[in-house]
């Protein structure tokens, strides 16, 4: 049974990275999830596993407001309930067949998912927006160290080529962290490119420290 402390929002993707009508794989500390945006632009999340034969739903496809599994085409609605089983097109699927819809919200250009809906929305960070996400093969401490970061509540404050930035970390494993980089909203394209390049260099530093350790 999930503890009260499990009711927290986890940053799993950048909103701009999920186009209308597409599904992507993502990770929570509890396991793999599929995050998808319906054709009308609404965001949804559920477990990354079809209840039929366990195929990853993140390999599936979105039609309208539904997500279909690529294996047998089982079709799920926004509440996770199975709406259609193509092998038996005339039969209404039993209501118990469900791929496990999860609470999901968007804020600051980030997609946040929880296993249990927390009482509050994720805090809005004024003046910042998501730039890029990447996976760093290092511990959170090694990352904070390489980026010369300062840990604040829920994020790590850094400076990247002279710009204030924030790192959101979603810990995937002992040395695997999913990082979302937030930057000030008014940054120019060339500044964004410079920040992105700086992030690559610091990732390399964080990962090399790991090897040396």
């Amino acid at each position: 049974m999930a503890a009260e402390s499990d009711a927290r929002w986890v940053p799993v993707a950048i909103s701009a990275d999920i186009m209308d009508g597409t599904v992507i794989p993502a990770r929570l500390p509890t396991g793999r999830i599929a995050v998808w945006r319906s054709v009308s632009g609404h965001i949804y999340a559920n477990g990354d596993r079809c209840p039929h034969r366990g195929m990853r739903l993140s390999h599936g496809f979105v039609r309208g407001e539904t997500l279909s599994c690529i294996y047998h085409g089982w079709r799920f609605g926004t509440d996770g309930a199975c709406q259609k089983i193509p092998a038996h097109p005339a039969v209404a699927p039993p209501k118990t067949i469900n791929c496990g819809a999860l609470p999901v919200v968007e804020g600051n250009g980030v997609v946040w998912v929880a296993t249990q809906r927390p009482s509050n929305e994720p805090s809005h960070i004024a003046g910042f927006e998501a730039l890029r996400s990447l996976v760093i093969t290092a511990t959170p401490d090694a990352i904070t160290h390489a980026f010369e970061g300062k840990t604040i509540v829920g994020a790590t404050k850094v400076q990247l080529v002279g710009h204030d930035a924030l790192l959101l970390m979603n810990i995937l494993g002992p040395d695997e962290v999913f990082v979302i980089v937030l930057i000030e909203t008014d940054l120019s394209v060339s500044d964004r490119l410079a920040v992105s390049a700086a992030v690559e260099g610091l990732r390399r530093a964080a990962e090399t420290t790991e090897d040396a350790a």
Binding site: A13, I14, G21, T22, I24, F61, R63, V135
Partner: peptide
């Protein structure tokens, strides 16, 4: 899984008129 821009690019290619599959690279059923 960890390359969102690559994913968007692959989808743009798969959506091109005249796109054909090969085993392991599915068409876009949608």
């Amino acid at each position: 899984d960890s390359y969102p821009s690559i994913r968007i690019w692959m989808r743009a290619i798969r959506a091109l008129p005249g796109f054909i599959e090969m085993p392991g690279i599915h068409r876009l059923h949608e």
